[in-house]
């Protein structure tokens, strides 16, 4: 098992009131598996992704990646894990505005001190059909192009797991379809893919669909 989340609970405080953003959630993912999580805004999907990416600590339960309990790792090891093994694609405009597209895409590779990061970034941009935009700044790109660049950046270090938070929220149906096709291709290449989305339709090639409501995660049968 590549990713295993067992009875994960995350508490938040709203004023003096405590509530469960993630309530006893369990999830598992094997290499090459493609899963989506559906749910309304505020249902806890993004919090669950942040837990999986090691950005948030659990209040109870466990999240393991490749057999390692990520709750036991310090910030340095967690950051390295996120950089090298998890391609995390945050929601919204998640490119750094003061870097060109190619620099944005190459950045995780440069951070990991991997050789040929720029060459790999060029190849990924080419594969995603936006090679012509390599030297542009994010402000000049459309929503669909920004999402593609963000996905390219998520793939730069050949992660074992790609985690995407609402990757199609600001895209038209045609572009959304293309993005989901891209995730399918990534899963077919051997990486596990976990996508949080509002889209109610199960994407092509998707193996599992989870539903999340008020922090409770259910696997669609």
């Amino acid at each position: 098992m590549l990713l295993e989340v067992n009875q994960a609970t995350k508490l938040y405080k709203r004023g003096t009131e405590e509530f469960k953003a993630v309530d006893n959630a369990s999830l598992s993912l094997n290499p090459g598996e493609y899963a989506v999580i559906n749910g309304q805004s505020g249902s806890g999907k993004s919090t669950l992704l942040a837990i999986i990416a090691g950005l948030l600590n659990l209040d109870s339960g466990q999240a393991s990646f490749d057999g390692t309990d990520i709750g036991t790792l310090g910030d340095k090891k967690l950051s390295a894990l996120r950089n090298e093994k998890i391609g995390f694609i945050p929601q919204g405009q998640c490119l750094l505005s003061n870097f060109t597209i190619i620099d944005n895409v190459a950045l995780p590779g440069l951070l990991a001190k991997r050789k040929n990061s720029r060459e790999r970034a060029k190849a990924l941009l080419d594969r995603l059909g936006i090679a012509r935009l390599a030297n542009q700044y994010p402000a000049r790109l459309s929503g669909g192009e920004i999402r593609r660049a963000a996905i390219a950046r998520g793939l730069i270090n050949e992660p074992k797991l790609v985690v995407a938070d609402e990757p199609t929220s600001d895209l038209d149906p045609a572009n959304s379809l293309n993005i989901f096709e891209l995730f399918n291709e990534i899963a077919l290449s051997g990486a596990a893919v976990l996508v949080v989305t509002h889209e109610s339709q199960k994407p092509n090639g998707c193996h599992k669909r989870y539903l999340m409501n008020d922090g409770v995660l259910l696997l669609e049968s």
Partner: peptide, 9 residues
């Protein structure tokens, strides 16, 4: 936040 997501400590 983006830097954190990319693995910056």
């Amino acid at each position: 936040g983006i830097y954190r997501a990319l693995g910056v400590t």
